[in-house]
Design a protein around this nucleic acid. Structure first.
Lengths: 324, 324
DNA sequence: TACAGTTACGGACCGCGTAAGCATA
DNA sequence: TATGCTTACGCGGTCCGTAACTGTA
């Protein structure tokens, strides 16, 4: 078994089982990949891919296991090279971030702007998706940092560090009946059509559940994936928007009336995560700290090495997270 | 970077930085190892080992990082080969177990006897040591299963499954003043010289702490690493023995008087652990179940995949662990 | 016919083993 | 002088790229 074979295997798996495409990405010839893949399968004694005719169509169960472990091997090899680059003081490399729309659209732009002046030679890769898509990217591709909210169960292999709190805000057009009410109740909210996010998570903090507890049946007029769409329809007068606080900017959205809703809905925490045991380059530490100033290298290292949940929680006990 | 280079590196690290010894274990020539090691260092751009003259004397900090990750890579590669062996239905392989004296001497013999009839072709490697030594073996060498008690913080990368409870017993020679007392108190115990284990862990359940709570200052006459030594000195009349329940056998030790001490000292749990994400061969599952019948494959798999502590604990909530 | 993977073959490269060289105790 | 690492060199294997071949849509 050679590292090259595992590289080829991973590339084929990551390119829709297309050997030709994989070969191109690897800057090598197609027969080279084909042959090494076959050699690997021969050595293992079973097929990693199911072939119908000559095209690869499916991954065998054992094959999936092999692919998963091959990717881990390659990750670790990358990390070894990273140690080398780090020691040479290289401020170049790749920083690949997986995140959700809200972070990518409203939170990260200034962070990335500052980061880029600090590390102009780091190639940034931003991968946007739902939590589920990001979780898959984490296990399949190579994502260095993950920034998201809630649903930590989706990311078992990651160390998750809390970045900041946020709450929901109610948004109405000027002149709306709710515009002058400082602290609307759920009942009052329920009187108007509601425009909010697609309910991706169904925990006790989800909107329907909270309305249900107050015996209010919300009239959800429209659900969207992202805040811009929601704001657009609020502007059209289609209803009352409920969205994340950091998606709103008093200046940018001065045609709308913003009403805090932290008395109605629990606050959430956005975290940043990285693979346990993964290598953090200097620039990754710095990126994290630009996003969340309280997360300095020392704290990150301690959190990554915390041996249990209690030790981990103790690290953050004294820290007041910012609100956004 | 080649897998071979990482193999050579690991072998050198595991053989006291002796290239010649490593080469022998690898069944290759000494210059081959020397050259590949050098090539690897060249590629990385820094020294993994500190050379004084021509002999390797120390590991550089970055070198240690590289070694750790190289070992992970090799582990994963072994796992891939294991997938292959498993699929071929091979009942052969290596099962390397790290454990403490008490387990190795009193608990494992019947387990291993039964296991060997089931899997005659599995090469068993038993590594005995203190918890600390085992922890080091887990990270350096290749230990498949770890069996120990307490101090779970020493093993952050392992999944630990509870096997059985045990408690402490008091042992005195026939005719000793305590021999007829069913439930001695700590005060009574404190009146005699005590012979027990070296206090390796200093938690709230450690013997000195428990005595201290009762305002008793025990007179510890002798501490030993293993139960046999303790029993020997109890037989010589040097004092009262306090040791683990499974280290005593009413038949074998019928010249001694055994007194339960679970009313004085909290009970402990012995667990079996394996690296998170590691490959478990069929025979490993079976070994675990021979040791702890409640740990069937299904339960082990679920525990290994549990995403958080709560989910993990829930799996064992309904299970009554045996006492030994 | 176009497309995707396999087979065939020559050349470059690489890693190994043997043998000799060179530091340190 | 013994031990242990490094350098030198020739051989054999391996991997790659080009080119020709073979199944599918």
């Amino acid at each position: 078994m050679k590292l090259q074979q595992l590289r080829y295997l991973a590339a084929v798996a990551q390119n829709g089982m297309n050997i030709t495409a994989a070969a191109e990405k690897l800057h090598t010839s197609q027969p080279a990949v084909s042959k090494q893949l076959k050699l690997l399968e021969d050595e293992l004694g079973f097929n990693i891919f199911v072939r119908s005719g000559r095209t690869l169509t499916k991954i065998t169960p054992a094959g999936q296991q092999v692919i998963d472990r091959a990717i881990r091997v390659l990750r670790e090899v990358q990390n070894i090279k990273g140690i080398s680059a780090e020691l040479k003081g290289e401020n170049s490399g790749v920083l690949s971030i997986g995140t959700t729309h809200t972070q990518a659209r409203y939170v990260l732009p200034p962070v990335i702007q500052q980061f880029r002046t600090q590390y102009p030679d780091v190639r940034l890769q931003l991968h946007q998706g739902t939590s589920e898509q990001i979780a898959e990217m984490v296990s399949l591709d190579r994502i260095d940092l993950t920034i998201a909210t809630g649903s930590s169960d989706l990311f078992p292999g990651l160390v998750l560090l809390p970045c900041y709190h946020w709450h929901r805000q109610i948004v109405v057009p000027r002149g709306h009946a709710l515009a002058n009410i400082k602290k609307p109740t759920l009942k009052q909210l329920g009187m108007y059509p509601i425009i909010t996010y697609v309910f991706s998570f169904t925990g006790s903090s989800s909107l329907p559940q909270i309305f249900a507890k107050a015996d209010v049946t919300p009239n959800v007029a429209l659900t969207a994936q992202d805040a811009d769409v929601i704001k657009t329809y609020v502007r059209l007068g289609m209803g009352v928007g409920i969205l994340a606080s950091m998606a709103l900017d008093p200046k940018e959205d001065d045609d709308l009336v913003l009403i805090d809703a932290d008395h109605l809905f629990p606050s959430h925490t956005t975290w940043i995560g990285f693979t346990r045991g993964g290598l953090l380059r200097r620039y990754m530490y710095d990126f994290i700290q630009v996003l969340a100033p309280h997360l300095n290298k020392r704290l990150i290292d301690r959190a990554a090495q915390a041996e249990n949940q209690e030790a981990f929680d103790a690290l953050f006990a004294d820290i007041q997270l910012p609100s956004r």
